[in-house]
C-alpha cells in the first residue's frame, strides 16, 4: 500500500517535472539578468570574471550569508564534538610516525600549496577561482600535513583569530560602503582601476582575500576538530 502510494506520487511528480522542464529547453535559455551581467558586469564592478562580479558584486549579500553558513557549521561541529567530550577520559592513541619520504614530501609541498591557494583567491576577479576555492586549497595543505607529518598541529587560537578578523573585515567593508560609498551596504567605494590588472575591481579583492583566509582557517579548524576526535 505504502509503496504503491509512493510510486504514484513519484510518477505524478516526475510527469510534472518533465512538463515544467519542457518550458525550459536545454542549452538555449538566456535570462535577462544574466545577459545584463555579461554586458555591464565589467563596467559596474571592474572584474573580468563575471561569475566573481556576480558573487562578490551584485550578489555579495548572498556571499556574506554563505560565509556565515560555513561559520555556523564550523562552530556547530565544534560544539557537538565538545559537548560529549567533557565526560570522557582522554586516552592518547600511539600513532606510528610517518616514513621519511612522506614526511619530507609533505613539508616540501606544504608552502607550495599555500602559495597556490593564495594565488587562487587573490586573482579571483581575473581568473576562474576565488575565495572559497582558494580557502579549500589552503585547508587541503593543512590536511596533508596532518596526515603526513602526524604530530604537527596548528594553534587553534591563531586559526580562530584569523577566522574572526577576516569575517569582521567582510562586514566592516560592507559597513564602510554604507558610510561613504553612496549609502548602500556592500557598495564599491574604491576606484575600479584598469581591467585585467591585479589592483582593480575595488572592494572585490579585499573581500575575496578575507573570504579565502576565513574559509581556509575554518576548514582547517574543522579538520583539527575531527582529527582530535579520532584520537
Amino acid at each position: 500500500m505504502k509503496s504503491v502510494f509512493s510510486l504514484i506520487l513519484l510518477v505524478v511528480l516526475g510527469a510534472g517535472v518533465v512538463f515544467t522542464l519542457s518550458s525550459i529547453p536545454f542549452g538555449s535559455t538566456s535570462s535577462d539578468v544574466g545577459e545584463y551581467y555579461i554586458d555591464s558586469g565589467r563596467a559596474d564592478t571592474g572584474a573580468t570574471n563575471i561569475v566573481t562580479s556576480v558573487v562578490v558584486g551584485y550578489r555579495a549579500f548572498d556571499t556574506l550569508g554563505e560565509v556565515t553558513v560555513l561559520f555556523v557549521a564550523a562552530i556547530g561541529l565544534g560544539a557537538i564534538l565538545a559537548a560529549g567530550r567533557e565526560n570522557e577520559e582522554k586516552k592518547k592513541a600511539e600513532w606510528e610516525p610517518a616514513s621519511l619520504v612522506l614526511y619530507t614530501g609533505c613539508r616540501f609541498l606544504f608552502p607550495l600549496i599555500l602559495l597556490f591557494g593564495a594565488y587562487v583567491f587573490i586573482h579571483g576577479h581575473l581568473t576562474p577561482g576565488g575565495g572559497f576555492q582558494g580557502g579549500a586549497v589552503i585547508a587541503s595543505a593543512f590536511l596533508m600535513v596532518y596526515l603526513g607529518c602526524r604530530k604537527k598541529r596548528i594553534s587553534r587560537t591563531w586559526a580562530r583569530n584569523t577566522e574572526s578578523i577576516s569575517g569582521l573585515v567582510f562586514v566592516v567593508t560592507g559597513l564602510t560602503g554604507l558610510a561613504v560609498g553612496g549609502h548602500y551596504f556592500l557598495s564599491n567605494f574604491l576606484p575600479e582601476g584598469t581591467l585585467n590588472t591585479l589592483f582593480s575591481a575595488g572592494i572585490i579583492p579585499i573581500i575575496y582575500i578575507a573570504i579565502g583566509l576565513k574559509v581556509g582557517s575554518e576548514l582547517t579548524g574543522v579538520i583539527d576538530d575531527l582529527i582530535e576526535e579520532s584520537e
Binding site: D62, G65, E66, V69, V72, I75, G76, A83, G84
Partner: peptide
C-alpha cells in the same frame, strides 16, 4: 526580497538550530 537570498538565510537558521538541538550532547 530575493528568493535565493531567502534560501541562504534559511540555511543559516536551519544549520544553527540543528547544532543547538544537540547542544547537551
Amino acid at each position: 526580497g530575493d528568493l535565493f537570498n531567502l534560501f541562504v538565510f534559511f540555511e543559516i537558521l536551519c544549520i544553527s538550530s540543528y547544532a543547538l538541538v544537540a547542544y547537551h550532547g
